[in-house]
Simulated assay, not measured.
Amino acid sequence: MALFAVVYAYPAGSEGPRDTHRPAHRAFLSELADRGLILVSGPLSNPAGEGGLLIFRAASAEEALAHTEQDPFRLQGLVENVTVHEWKAAVGPLAESFGA
């Protein structure tokens, strides 16, 4: 298994709907974490706009992306763009746990 960084980009003006659906979104992600599929997730904020970062353990980028398909944020159209990158942890506890 490899690590994959899944990055969500949120559309402008989606703050209110995201607030509404955030409890279901976090419950969904917590379930994935309980199953050992997601290692960590959280919001991103940058000049280009808001988003989220999710670090998955998966066999492929396609598998990591598939894990997000039922995310309430995605189902409600609150994710404008999703990118997936294989991530090789080099230093720190994750690197030690995943054989870097």
Rank of each mutant, 00 (worst) to 15 (best):
S45A: 13
G16Q: 10
E80T: 01
S41R: 02
A9F: 04
Q70Y: 03
D34V: 02
S60E: 02
T20G: 05
P23F: 06
G16L: 09
H25E: 15
D34M: 09
L65E: 12
L44M: 15
A48Y: 06
S45M: 12
A27F: 06
R26H: 10
V82N: 00
N81F: 05
N46F: 12
T68D: 05
G13P: 11
V82A: 00
H21C: 07
S41P: 10
I55T: 03
G49C: 13
G52H: 06
D34H: 06
G77W: 04
L53I: 05
L44A: 04
A9D: 15
H25C: 10
A12K: 15
S45T: 11
H67K: 06
E62R: 04
N81R: 12
P11A: 15
G13Q: 02
F28D: 08
P72I: 10
R18G: 08
D19V: 10
A58V: 02
R22N: 07
Y10W: 13
V82E: 02
A64C: 08
L32M: 12
S14Y: 13
G52L: 00
L53N: 02
D34I: 01
L32C: 04
R26K: 07
F73W: 09
A66R: 10
L65T: 08
R57T: 05
A27E: 12
L29R: 10
L78W: 08
F73Q: 05
Q76V: 00
S60M: 04
A24P: 09
S30Y: 05
R57N: 01
E15Y: 04
L78K: 02
A58C: 00
P72H: 07
S60T: 03
P11C: 14
R74L: 09
A12L: 11
G52D: 02
V79I: 08
P17E: 13
G13C: 14
A59Q: 02
L29E: 10
Q70M: 04
D19K: 10
P23Y: 12
S41L: 05
V82W: 00
P23V: 08
A61T: 01
D19G: 12
L37I: 10
A66S: 11
R26D: 13
I38A: 13
E31Q: 15
F73S: 11
L54N: 04
R22M: 13
A61V: 01
L75F: 00
L75G: 03
E63G: 01
T20I: 15
S30R: 14
P47A: 09
G52S: 05
H21T: 09
G52E: 02
E31K: 13
H25T: 15
A61M: 01
L75V: 14
P17G: 09
I55N: 00
R18S: 06
E15F: 11
S60P: 00
R18M: 09
Q76T: 07
G42A: 04
P43A: 14
E80W: 01
S14V: 12
A48C: 05
G36P: 11
A66W: 05
L29A: 12
H21W: 14
